[in-house]
Design a protein around this nucleic acid. Structure first.
Length: 318
DNA sequence: CGCTACGTCCGGATTACATCA
DNA sequence: AATGATGTAATCCGGACGTAG
């Protein structure tokens, strides 16, 4: 289940408020909607990826040929270098910035892989140099390594791991513009990945599946954070509006109370108080009704209605 | 059928590094 | 060159869910 937070680019941040407009009109409240959880484990997504514990399926996926990838790509991308590079030896992506990243692991295509990555490899599977690694961390990495071993035969990665292990330096990967664009395009299509998509994406980007997974997790978190900020702004404005409304009504009420003490009978209301309802807004009528409750006896109202019929009549659009 | 252990994935919080002003 | 701010990749942790025994 997920919170019913709508996307910020919609004119109305909370789409479900359409159905509860009356509620919103009457009360300012914070609403949450519950809906089916949409993630990698949802029915339709999961069935494309198969069981996560099925190594056979993983192998079949990862061994697909470039042609297969082109036929069933995870996304309908049309990067100029994508098709070309999938079918040929990877050339450097059109990014000068990538040339500067040659201090990292060099781009290398796996001799055992039929799919050449379109991006330079810059793995950042590192060990903790501050003794922060724990059993869980180790197990997680081990799991990734094992999965990679099952599905991806990439000798260069293994050597990179060794280098990292020896260095014991935590390096932080900076994804290239192309990698980010590629990930963003995929994220636009679906914000979660099943195993198949994750591995295919990792292979194309020459990253570990874990890195792709982490990127999607962080991306979802950023999206949610951004949306929360948008919703906060919306609620803040609602709050300000209602505060102002409340202030105005309080003032009206005070004026009416003052009138009541000085002039107990509506018959004697000055004309100025009657000019406030040329459009007979329900709020005005409501304020007048409050005044009635406060000040008037039935007899007084009866007497007053002669002169103030319009103001005290039932609001038109209540 | 219910229970338990295990594996996996996710969200949220946090850390740590790279980059920029 | 030093430094603080910022962005973000990566980690940690707990919860939910599915599956096998």
């Amino acid at each position: 289940m997920e919170l019913g937070l709508s996307l910020g680019d919609t004119p109305k941040p909370f789409s479900f408020l359409d159905k509860t407009q009356e509620l919103v009109n009457k009360d300012l409240g914070f609403c949450m909607a519950l809906g089916p959880r949409i993630n990698g484990r949802s029915q339709e997504r999961e069935e494309t990826g198969g069981s996560s514990s099925d190594p056979t399926i993983q192998l079949n996926i990862l061994r697909c040929s470039p042609v297969q990838i082109n036929q069933t790509p995870p996304s309908k991308l049309s990067f100029p270098w994508l098709t070309k590079n999938l079918l040929s030896e990877p050339a450097a992506p059109p990014d000068a910035n990538l040339q500067e990243r040659e201090d990292g692991p060099a781009l290398s295509s796996s001799p055992n892989s039929t799919v050449s990555s379109i991006f330079p490899m810059d793995l950042s599977l590192y060990t903790s140099h501050q003794g922060r690694g724990n059993k869980r961390d180790f197990e997680t990495r081990l799991r990734e390594m094992e999965r990679d071993e099952r599905g991806v035969s990439n000798s260069s990665r293994a050597s990179d791991h060794d280098e990292e292990e020896n260095c014991l330096v935590r390096k932080k990967l900076r994804l290239s513009k192309e990698q980010l664009a590629f990930l963003e395009e995929n994220f636009k299509e679906h914000s979660t990945l099943n195993l198949k998509e994750k591995q295919a994406l990792a292979k194309q980007l020459n990253l570990h599946p874990r890195q792709v997974e982490v990127w999607f997790q962080n991306r979802r978190a950023r999206t949610k954070l951004k949306q929360t900020e948008v919703d906060c702004e919306y609620l803040k404005k609602c709050c300000e509006t209602l505060t102002e409304e409340n202030r105005r009504l309080q003032k009206e009420l005070q004026e009416l109370r003052a009138l009541k003490t000085s002039q107990p009978f509506y018959k004697q209301l000055p004309a100025t108080t009657l000019t406030m309802c040329p459009s007979c807004e329900w709020r005005v009528a409501s304020a007048a009704a409050s005044a009635i409750n406060i000040t008037a006896s039935a007899a007084t109202i009866t007497a007053a209605t002669d002169n103030t019929t319009l103001c005290l009549s039932k609001p038109r659009s209540l």
